[in-house]
Amino acid sequence: MDLTLKIWRQENAQARGKFETYKVTGISEDASFLEMLDILNESMVDKVQLPIAFDHDCREGICGMCSLYINGRPHGPDQGITVCQMHMRNFKDGSTIVIEPWRAKPFPVIKDLMIDRSAFDLIIQAGGYVSVHTGGVPDANSIPIKKEHAELAMDAAACIGCGACVATCKNASAMLFVSAKVSQMALLPQGKIEAARRVQKMVAEMDDLGFGNCTNTYACEAECPKDIKISNIARMNWQFLIAKVGAQKMNA
């Protein structure tokens, strides 16, 4: 396949970026999208040019590091996969592909297509866990959990923290990401104990970091590579409400 690529280049976080046009030829349909970028980068190294910086690591769709808009869509045209799992057979020979870094205020560009998603770590640090320490925990089977709840928790826990939900949302909302963790924990007896505290802390951190609010466009669910459901947001809102009411009762 021969392709024209319009790729965002940006020297560093402060610099102004712009699109540059590149041609690649003879790309196999069986190559992955990132392998196509590898081939382009190799040709740039041949010309002693700095290759395009992009994030990637496991290349099997689980680490959540890859993050590109391809023709305007996070993780490209296919459903339910990350960029690294997409293969060139999804594109037509001779076509032009536009590649950009994800754009959201809390995800500043580092260089070219690399972005800084440490905001997600900060949200988790605010409370996205069960506060147990190593050792001294009960036997695993002393906490029976309804299979349905365990399955729902697992659905939510499948989030890879890539940020596609934020990237696709017109409000740059992180509600799907945050709600996935809130839901996972709230569905499990271990997590229920500090559910109220958790949801309040995580939502406050999310707001502080400048993520927008949810206006129910469902774009996040459509673009999530792990099919995280928007019902998690409803569950989080419910948890948030319970926490608020609970706090008012305590104060009354």
Partner: peptide
């Protein structure tokens, strides 16, 4: 035991 206490959703 530790992982379950942390909320790891095992099958």
């Amino acid at each position: 035991d530790q992982c379950v206490a942390q909320g790891v959703p095992f099958a």
